[in-house]
């Protein structure tokens, strides 16, 4: 595993995704990126079979991954689904896949070897805190799913994240990397892009040279549903 090319546009996007999902600085994200590999799958591609050795932790960057179990009678049952910004696989130790995993729609994963990640986490406080936060958020998501709890819609989560990034004057500087922000609020780049386009169209947010400016905080708050 040679790491992602951080000089390419997609590589820079991946660095931004790591920063956004782990709430860490660029230095830590670049350190992790050296051990990261981007893997793409077509709809319904098998990612792993049940019982396969699991030696990586995977972050869903695009698309979704479905975990399926086969019962004694051969019936297939969906165990869970991981969308953008969620992790699955092995951590802190290597293990085996407890179910089959397949791609749901065109899917891209960022994979890091479990042993390497554990090593990095033991020496980088930002990465350690980031992984802990990521796992805690995912536990919350899991509990939400068990309870079928109502939460914000995907656009609502995106708008809330925009508000959280803004300073007291409503400025977000530098302007966020959309793909990264989308992953951190568990949605697709397309959904985030459409949601932002609505704000520009209505004049609720303005583009500035290297920043976004929230023109009407009240109108943005009203869209958080």
């Amino acid at each position: 595993m040679s790491g992602i090319n951080t000089n390419s546009k997609s590589g820079r996007n991946d660095i931004a995704i790591i920063q956004s999902c782990l709430s860490c600085g660029e230095t830590s994200a670049r350190r992790l990126s050296k051990s990261l590999m981007s893997r793409s799958y077509a709809h319904r591609d098998i990612i792993a079979h049940m019982g396969d050795p699991c030696t990586h932790l995977f972050l869903v960057a695009e698309g979704a991954v479905v975990a399926e179990l086969f019962g004694i009678d051969g019936q297939q049952a969906q165990l869970t689904r991981h969308g953008p910004g969620e992790v699955f696989g092995a951590y802190p130790e290597e293990s085996t896949f407890r179910s089959a995993f397949s791609a749901n729609g065109a899917t891209r994963l960022l994979a890091v070897p479990t042993t390497k990640l554990a090593e990095l986490v033991s020496s980088d406080v930002e990465l350690a805190a980031g992984i802990a936060n990521l796992m805690a958020r995912q536990l919350d998501l899991l509990l939400d799913r068990m309870a079928a709890r109502i939460g914000l819609s995907a656009t609502g989560r995106f708008y809330r994240a925009l508000l959280q990034l803004a300073d007291g004057n409503g400025t977000i500087r530098p302007a966020p990397v959309l793909a990264a922000m989308a992953v951190s609020v568990h949605t697709t780049r397309e959904t985030a892009s459409r949601a932002l386009a609505v704000l520009f169209r209505r004049g609720i947010v303005e583009r500035q040279e290297d920043a976004l400016k929230i023109v009407s905080r009240r109108m943005l708050e009203e869209l958080i549903v």
Binding site: Q78, G83, R145, G151, V225
Partner: peptide, 13 residues
Amino acid sequence: TIGELAFPDGPVE
């Protein structure tokens, strides 16, 4: 629309 419900097989608006 009033939000999103989380289910194991994906969210439902």
